[in-house]
Design a protein around this nucleic acid. Structure first.
Lengths: 256, 256
DNA sequence: TGGGTGGTGTACGCTGCCGGACAGAGAGAG
DNA sequence: CTCTCTCTGTCCGGCAGCGTACACCACCCA
């Protein structure tokens, strides 16, 4: 798998605008493209490097590119007039940021923020739109992904309503973990609180519980997950439902 | 407008499977189809009549038809393992029930329930899919609607997190009102509680507040809205944000 | 007309999260 | 090495909504 990826990288090197440490195929949507499609896209892919907290797009703003995270994680936040916010979905290497573009909305009332620093691939909006509008695997792939995103959003809505902060924190950690290579999250409690739409103190307390139970260790903006199965057990069902839906709609390794 | 609608009805009568009291063009998506498209669809449209509480599709189940409500209102509920549920969106004459079908999901982890008895139009799933997969106005119309639905879902998620039951009840009443001809809702507090994902007693209390303020009158499963502007004022911003987004994405009277 | 039933109002203690305030503890910079 | 800034832990009262229990009332139907 590693070897394969590097093999591909060597092959595409000539026309590649992205550095070798940011393999586009780390993004599962790009990897799921038919090879011919991928080769055509390749010259148009550009590498981007995101710092923690970078705003990818702003609520109400337009979009010149769409983004395929490779190692970064991006949160979709819904922001309200008084500044209160809540995360409605999270996008990592399995997805694309800027779905509303091909859904036909010029803008969206949400904000995309980099939740975990890392790299991604960007692609010009009009290029993607043209590709989308040819009926074919690209469109169906993107729509299936959007359906998975919708599931995540509705699950989040229900979770906000019914589950305790402890459970939600577990869910959130697991979703982030799935999108990272390591089990270390660089993330202050303040940030997590913003994502979950709760007070920072609440996160301190919930994290304290998880720490006491030996599931995580926490030190100054750095969370280490010690017992992943334990987290899953303590999480509400929401994590599993969302994960299953993603797995069903976007089988890893599928060739479309 | 009325005359126009009846004119159309007379014209299409020969091939029409739907009774004259269930004009397909009451549904804004059907009305927004190009006329040629609409005429082709017409022979395939069938009238349905829904009782309160009818389950249109079940969580995890497939779908043989999609539905275009005309006078009915359908709630999309996300149901959890323990039976707890919450409404994530509501669909009336502005929309379509069964979006996941053309999004590429065979099933969806939510349930669609008739929240207000009335009529709708159904259309065979495979017919709609074929129409969707021709690149053109149908696809773009349906995708734009789906984008509006996504906005409603994320707004619901945030609303669940941050707003009081009083505010949410106002939002919910307004969303329902927009999808009804009259200002009378036939709806028990028990039902509303299920939709909002709260206790029945909570709804009693919130409805009491609104009633004390003279905004609604309530008697045994029948709500009458007395002061709509008052409701809007008391509601959180969520109602307006969602409404604006629908208006933007699906202008009434547009010819696509 | 008089039960029966389903919908509504009310009360009680409990819990989870909010609001604010403040103390301690790393980590980086000079 | 110390200073400062940011992040984390803890405490308080307050309140919204939960769970439970029960009484009442409107409407339907026998």
């Amino acid at each position: 798998m590693q070897a394969d990826r590097f093999g591909v990288l060597r092959f595409i090197q000539p026309g590649l605008k992205v550095p070798t440490n940011n393999d586009p195929k780390r993004n599962q949507l790009l990897a799921a493209l038919p090879e011919a499609e991928f080769q055509r896209w390749l010259p148009h892919l550009e590498s981007v490097d995101w710092a923690l907290g970078k705003v990818v797009y702003e609520s109400g703003g337009g979009l010149s590119h769409v983004f395929f995270p490779t190692t970064a994680i991006v949160s979709l936040l819904h922001v309200m007039e008084d500044g209160d916010s809540a995360e409605i979905a999270v996008v990592g290497h399995e997805g694309i940021v800027g779905v509303f573009l091909f859904m036909g909305g010029a803008t969206t009332p949400s904000r995309a923020v980099v939740q975990s620093a890392g790299k991604g691939i960007r692609l010009k909006a009009d290029f993607l739109l043209r590709e989308f509008n040819k009926i074919g695997p690209v469109m169906h792939l993107l729509l299936r992904y959007t359906q998975a995103l919708i599931t995540q959003m509705s699950q989040t809505a229900v979770c906000n309503r019914h589950h305790t902060l402890d459970q939600q924190l577990c869910r959130w950690l697991l979703l982030s973990l799935d999108r990272l290579a390591s089990s270390d999250l660089v993330m202050t409690q303040e940030l997590i609180a913003n994502m979950l739409g709760v007070r920072r103190e609440g996160v301190t307390e919930a994290a304290g519980h998880l720490s006491d139970a030996g599931l995580i260790s926490y030190r100054r903006g750095r969370i280490k997950v010690l017992d992943r199965p334990g987290l899953e057990k303590r999480s509400c069902e929401c994590y599993r439902v969302v994960k299953d839906e993603y797995d069903k709609l976007l089988p890893v390794g599928e060739a479309v």
